[in-house]
């Protein structure tokens, strides 16, 4: 479903701030794969997601989604294939538009915006049903301005928006990092629910090793812009956090207390 072929990206090339963020990363996701991505600060996790989403062009390599070469397309042209949830809960929704308007925008992801009315009666019913499934009581608040919702609610809405128009690929970029533990757990639960219901091919970046092991069917670890670990199936299921930390130190060749803090 997603084929990344040896992509590279260097930020600020030729300056003292030069940063090789991705160094020839290759990755292939089969349909229905749910891959969690871990790694220390600056390992290239978010960079990988942004490369796939088309936030900026890559320096080298190819990106194919469902056999379509999207390497030359900017983010808004790739949007029809990709559902996204950002780290910042404020980023995934339009604060001063109504909940129903946000969902209506998402239902038309990647489609030509015509001069037909922006929200139809029939789709409002559909939204009501889908919101009820979130279990947050939002189904009765269709006309509320999204800015009045909490961070957790907004993240749940963003998840729903990402899946309203079935995406070929779902990108979750540390989407629970800014939430309190209880809300984060709830949002992760909703993520699992939405991914399995729609059988979505998913790439989820997380700082939390436990979450990385518990969710998805495959786990990759990035370090200095390279994939240094790629496990799936039984091997991933039986993985523990200490084992994972150990592996991290082996591949990174360091015993950085910072990384330990960040990843555990």
């Amino acid at each position: 479903m997603l084929r990344v072929e040896s992509i590279s990206k260097t930020f600020n090339p030729g300056t003292i701030n030069e940063k090789k963020a991705l160094c020839g990363v290759s990755l292939h996701l089969a349909p229905g794969d749910f891959v969690t991505v871990i790694g220390g600060n600056g390992a290239g996790k978010s960079t990988l997601l942004n490369a796939v989403a088309g936030t900026w062009p890559v320096d080298d390599g190819r990106i194919l989604i469902d056999n379509v070469d999207v390497t030359g397309l900017p983010d808004f042209r790739r949007a029809k294939y990709i559902g996204r949830v950002f780290q910042d809960p404020m980023m995934g929704t339009a604060a001063n538009m109504q909940l129903v308007e946000n969902l209506a925008l998402a239902l038309r992801r990647g489609k030509t915006r015509t001069l037909r009315w922006g929200v139809t009666k029939a789709e409002s019913e559909q939204y009501r049903e889908r919101l009820a499934q979130l279990g947050l009581g939002l189904e009765d608040r269709l006309t509320v301005r999204v800015g009045l919702l909490s961070g957790g609610q907004r993240q749940a809405v963003t998840l729903l928006m990402a899946s309203l128009m079935q995406p070929k690929l779902l990108l979750l970029d540390e989407h629970t990092a800014a939430l309190d533990p209880k809300t984060a757990a709830k949002v992760l639960e909703i993520s699992d629910q939405i991914v399995s219901e729609n059988n979505l091919t998913t790439l989820m970046v997380t700082h939390n090793m436990k979450d990385a092991i518990r969710h998805g069917n495959r786990l990759i670890m990035l370090h200095e812009g390279r994939i240094v670990l790629d496990i799936s199936g039984e091997e991933k299921k039986n993985m523990t956090v200490p084992q994972l930390l150990e592996m991290f130190h082996t591949v990174s060749g360091s015993d950085d207390a910072n990384d330990k803090m960040l990843l555990s």
Binding site: I82, R109, G110
Partner: peptide
């Protein structure tokens, strides 16, 4: 209202 979101939704 939100440029990043709009682009992610194909606008």
């Amino acid at each position: 209202s939100n440029g990043a979101m709009s682009r992610a939704l194909g606008i």
